[in-house]
Each structure stands twice: as structure tokens, then as C-alpha cells.
Design a binder for these strands. Structure first.
Length: 314
DNA sequence: TCCTCTCCTTGCTT
DNA sequence: AAAGCAAGGAGAG
């Protein structure tokens, strides 16, 4: 099968390495530099990335100066250029999530380093793969999660024509796996959760589309009914898998960062989530940037509007 | 109902 | 080298 190529024009800033490595997706990896070079040590210095979307391997790279674009080469069943634009969320400009001067979102954007991260694109990923990925994320790290997800694809996924990679296996396929074989991939105590979720969905069916429009509390409750899915993972699935940017997943890093931003010493997760609503409808995207900012840039200063008023000396 | 504690795998870090 | 730690969840108390 001949591979197809597309040039996807980008609205707004774009940082492909950040987009693929920030912890939202787990099947993108740098392609070693081609030819005699090949000495980037897997750092992606060649600028070329390989990922799997549906039944296709996508080779992606960012083209140079404005107009910025993503060059893609597709192997396997092409999802089509329109679907890839959706996947990369190229129809939106991330700056829109900061609109509204004087709002907490705008204050966030003023923090040092924040603007440099606007090239992070929130991918519209496949819900089922997102669910499994984040079930595996419990008390883990990006590297281990990626190993587990890739291992499931290698073992139970469908081959992709013209590619060495495989699609992510459907729930019905994972439901037939043995727990022991899942554990062999290194996902440990999360194996029975993955298996349980796969079996439930394979047996009872699952309507992802209704999660896209359901009231957020109802959507969260439905996901949390699955084994291995609590509040944090439910929110991640909603955010990354069904395009619900009106979620604010609270993990230990976001908890710490949000406490700092609000200038509070302690708060329950629900209170942090309630505060996040002031960040507007794009708070899920902002969460992802805050996460990265907090992990790489140290403590965050309180936002001006949240800073407790200083008492005047009497 | 809500909070806190412990256990659960694995592998890398200190 | 033993202990700590990592994008949590489930179960007990």
C-alpha cells in the first residue's frame, strides 16, 4: 500500500515534542535521525515522530517557519486529513483559552514560562485507548505507562500494512487476555483493573458519544463505575478521550500547584476543582500546562487575584 | 458521609 | 544496598 502524505496547516503556536511528551499520550515516540546521522540517541532530534492513530501509523514532523504546519505520512488505513486535523486539534488556537483580560486564565498566562508552553496541543485521542492508558497511570510514570500500552498493542493489536507497529486492541480482544500476560507487560496491580474494564465494556457495551454531552458529574460517575477508575482517572479520560476540556484532573502535582496558585495551605480536591472553574471552559488545557510548569519550573507564585490582601500596619 | 491508612507492582533513583 | 518514589484506586476502619 502506498503511503499518503498531508500538510496540515496549524492555527496558533505548535510544539510537537511537548505535545507528544507531556504525559497525555503514550504511543508517540521519536524516530531516530535517518541516514548517517542517527546519533540523536532517540531524543527525536530528527524532528520526526511515529505514532499510531486508529489503524494507521502516523509519521509526523513540524514544518519550519510560518505558516507553521504538520507534515504527516500515513501508513495503513488512513483516517483522512480531516480526522487528523481533529486529532491534533488544529481547528483551535490555544490562545483562545486565555481570553478575558483580568481573569485567572489571563493571570496564569502572565506567569514566567507559561507562554512558551502554548504550543502544547491537547490531542483528541481515542477514548478506549485513553481509558486503558490512564488506568495504567496510577502511581506510575510516563515511561512505564508507555511500555504497558505499547506491549498490549504488540501482543493483541492488529498489524498495520507497511508498518512495524500495531493498532491498539479493542476491548473485546483485551477481554480475552489472561491477567498473567498483562502483568508480564509490567503493569502490575493495574492488570486486573484493565482486564475488568475490558470485560465489562465488551460484555455490556459502552456509549462513548453520550459522555461527550452528558452533564460532567454524570459522565464522571459513569466512568468511575469501571474498575480501576477513580476521580482523577475519570477526569483524564474525559479530558483526553472525549474532548471534555471542562474537566480539571487533580493529581498530586496539580494539587500542589493549585494550592500555590490560590495561596491556600490546604483544600479538598473538590474545592480545588471548584476553583478551577474560574479558569473557564478551557481549564483542562490549562491544567496540562500547569502540570508541566510545576514539574519543570518549581513552585508557582500565587495569582494576583488570589493573593491574600496584605494587612496594613496599624 | 467523610477522612485516613495501607496495600498493590515495577523499576528507577538516592 | 535498602528505602524512597512515581499523572491512584480499592478496601478497611
Amino acid at each position: 500500500m502506498r503511503s499518503k502524505r498531508h500538510t496540515l496547516e496549524v492555527l496558533g503556536p505548535l510544539d510537537l515534542p511537548l505535545t507528544f511528551s507531556c504525559g497525555q499520550a503514550f504511543r508517540w515516540r521519536p524516530v531516530a535521525g535517518d541516514g548517517a546521522a542517527g546519533r540523536d540517541g532517540g531524543t527525536g532530534a530528527s524532528g520526526l515522530w511515529s505514532g499510531v492513530v486508529g489503524g494507521a501509523e502516523i509519521l509526523a514532523s513540524a514544518s519550519g517557519l510560518p505558516p507553521v504546519a504538520i507534515q504527516v505520512e500515513i501508513r495503513g488505513e488512513s483516517p483522512g486529513a480531516a480526522a487528523l486535523r481533529r486529532y491534533f486539534r488544529l481547528d483551535e488556537n490555544p490562545r483562545e483559552y486565555l481570553s478575558g483580560a483580568g481573569t485567572p486564565a489571563a493571570e496564569l498566562a502572565a506567569l514566567p514560562g507559561f507562554r512558551d508552553l502554548l504550543g502544547m496541543r491537547l490531542l483528541r485521542q481515542e477514548p478506549w485507548e485513553t481509558l486503558v492508558s490512564f488506568i495504567c497511570s496510577a502511581a506510575s510514570n510516563v515511561r512505564k505507562i508507555a511500555g504497558g500500552v505499547e506491549g498490549m498493542a504488540e501482543r493483541w493489536g492488529e498489524p498495520i500494512a507497511g508498518s512495524a507497529r500495531r493498532s491498539f486492541p479493542a476491548p473485546e480482544r483485551l477481554a480475552r487476555a489472561r491477567e498473567q500476560d498483562l502483568r508480564a507487560l509490567g503493569i502490575g496491580f493495574r492488570a486486573p483493573y484493565v482486564l475488568g474494564a475490558a470485560r465489562r465494556i465488551a460484555r455490556d457495551g459502552w456509549d462513548w458519544d453520550s459522555l461527550r454531552v452528558a452533564p460532567i458529574e454524570e459522565a464522571r460517575a459513569r466512568l468511575q463505575d469501571l474498575p480501576g477508575v477513580g476521580p482523577k482517572i475519570a477526569d483524564c479520560v474525559l479530558l483526553f478521550g472525549v474532548d471534555r476540556l471542562d474537566t480539571y484532573p487533580v493529581d498530586r502535582w496539580i494539587r500542589r500547584a493549585t494550592l500555590e496558585l490560590t495561596g491556600r495551605r490546604r483544600a479538598r480536591d473538590e474545592e480545588l476543582e471548584a476553583w478551577s472553574r474560574r479558569l473557564g471552559p478551557g481549564r483542562g488545557y490549562l491544567q496540562q500546562i500547569i502540570f508541566h510548569l510545576r514539574r519543570t519550573g518549581g513552585p508557582l507564585p500565587p495569582l494576583p487575584s488570589e493573593r491574600p490582601a496584605r494587612r496594613k500596619a496599624s
